[in-house]
Design a protein around this nucleic acid. Structure first.
Lengths: 99, 99
DNA sequence: GTTAAATATGAACAAATTTTCATTTAATGC
DNA sequence: GCATTAAATGAAAATTTGTTCATATTTAAC
């Protein structure tokens, strides 16, 4: 098999790096079922306001999330189903691990 | 959807972190088609002997690789097809990105 | 037992990342 | 306008990570 070119590998690296963080994983799962406000996300993920906001920005910049403002609140959603697929594959892998 | 428990999330984090590195991605693709010796891997991935060895250990400890010794040489292979699946999903995601 | 080849290891350094804390901006209601 | 709520931001501290360099181990050949 031919390995992806450097640019592709870099993008893959970036996506994996961004998904590969405990806080961000919790955030992603918090909005699996649909959009949530920052406040709801921080509560469900159990992280501080600032941390939620910082990591939401990271996820957004990586195009894993999109957002919408309504009044004082900001709502985030998964950008598409790739994220869901990725997390599913990863979940399946680790649940079949025999440790 | 119910988020995976903390232990699962940690394992997922770990797998994603380990896959999310340029050098390690190159190594993984180097052995996509079958086992290779460390020497072949370092050449194909274009990294130093020491770096190849260090990262092979990381991949091995994460159970992404298994190895076999034969004479002076050590051969590494992908541990299973999950790795392939994961990289495929990630590749598909990034190739559909509109940047 | 020496030498050479292949791989592994440990320590040190540089760089990147995650988190916290304090502050700021934006939107609303009074 | 002022106060309040929600979210974002910036800088600093804390931690983790990736890489290199030098050295060690292992195996085989002589």
């Amino acid at each position: 098999m031919q390995a992806p070119d450097e640019t592709m590998l870099e993008r893959m690296e970036n996506l994996l790096k961004i998904a590969g963080d405990f806080t961000r994983l919790k955030i992603l799962y918090a909005i699996m079922d649909g959009e949530k406000s920052v406040g709801e996300i921080q509560e469900e993920a159990g992280v501080s306001q600032s941390l939620a906001s910082h990591q939401l920005r990271v996820l957004k910049e990586a195009n894993l999330l999109s957002m919408r403002k309504e009044g004082k609140k900001v709502y985030y959603v998964l950008a598409d189903n790739h994220v869901r697929d990725l997390l599913e594959v990863v979940y399946n892998h680790v649940s079949e691990e025999n440790l």
